[in-house]
């Protein structure tokens, strides 16, 4: 379960998150949608402590972080990041490591797993994301979609309860969107919660249990995909979806 309690965040005098309070159920897929600059990425980054916030608190599976950033949350952040994985928009694979190297890095050096055990697990994960043949390749030898799969496997290797994904479809060829949808559905079926930022509405519709519309730093509407995307009530949502 993810709980946000009046989370506020400003860059300088520009308020980006305007007191967001929300609860997302465990093991569900939540999509954050909304106009560009609405604070989606910022909110996602706050959820695993990559971005600090100015007031409020965030609780994920019993771990709470508060305003003030790294200095005030050191112990909590470590635990939080053990439960929340992040797949970046540009994947950010470690350029000097192979696919397997990327996946075992954190299990070995953060969790203290043995290299042998971590490598076996990495092989299973690579198989799961359909990359079993590319384990020895470096990121620059992989296509965008392949890098994304490795990034997902890398996040899964830490056995998170929640996976955060920023724009998972933005850097993919349209034909590949279907593949990643299937992959994510498979992952969710094993009991993982997903929070996804996306502006690919067909993808959002296909994968989400719930859709949140973020506008000007506030959640202006939320609900099941067919409701929010099909018959939105809030005028800002309608404007965003181009329905008026």
């Amino acid at each position: 379960m993810i709980e946000l309690d009046t989370v506020t965040k400003a860059f300088g005098d520009r308020t980006v998150l305007n007191g967001i309070t929300a609860t997302f159920a465990a093991k569900s897929v939540v999509s954050l949608v909304g106009p560009s600059g609405g604070g989606k990425t910022t909110l996602l980054r706050c959820l695993n402590g990559l971005e600090s916030f100015d007031s409020g608190s965030i609780t994920i599976s019993g771990v709470t972080i508060r305003a003030g950033g790294e200095r005030h949350n050191r112990a909590m952040l470590a635990r939080l990041r053990g439960r929340v994985g992040f797949v970046f928009q540009q994947w950010n694979l470690f350029a000097h490591r192979t696919a397997v190297g990327n996946i075992i890095e954190a299990p070995v050096h953060v969790r203290g797993e043995s290299v042998k055990h971590a490598t076996e697990h990495a092989a299973q994960l690579l198989a799961k994301v359909g990359m079993e043949e590319h384990g020895a390749k470096y990121p620059h030898e992989l296509s965008g979609g392949q890098q994304q799969r490795v990034a997902i496997a890398r996040a899964l290797a830490m056995k998170p309860e929640v996976l955060l994904m920023d724009e998972p479809t933005s850097a993919l060829d349209p034909e590949r969107v279907q593949d990643v949808t299937e992959l994510l559905k498979a992952i969710v079926s094993e009991g993982l919660a997903l929070v996804i930022v996306s502006h690919e509405m067909s993808f959002v519709r296909a994968i989400s249990d719930e859709v949140c519309v973020l506008h000007g730093g506030s959640i202006v509407e939320r609900g099941a995909p067919h409701e929010v995307l099909g018959s939105p009530k809030d005028p800002r949502t309608r404007a965003f979806l181009g329905m008026d």
Binding site: N48, G49, L50, A78, R81, G82, G85, F86, F88, Q90, N92, L93, F94, A95, E105, A106, H109, V110, R154, A155, M158
Partner: peptide, 14 residues
């Protein structure tokens, strides 16, 4: 790139 540090932090590294 800055993303390398963020990716490491997001994986729980100090």
């Amino acid at each position: 790139p800055k993303g390398q540090m963020e990716a490491a932090l997001a994986l729980g590294m100090t």
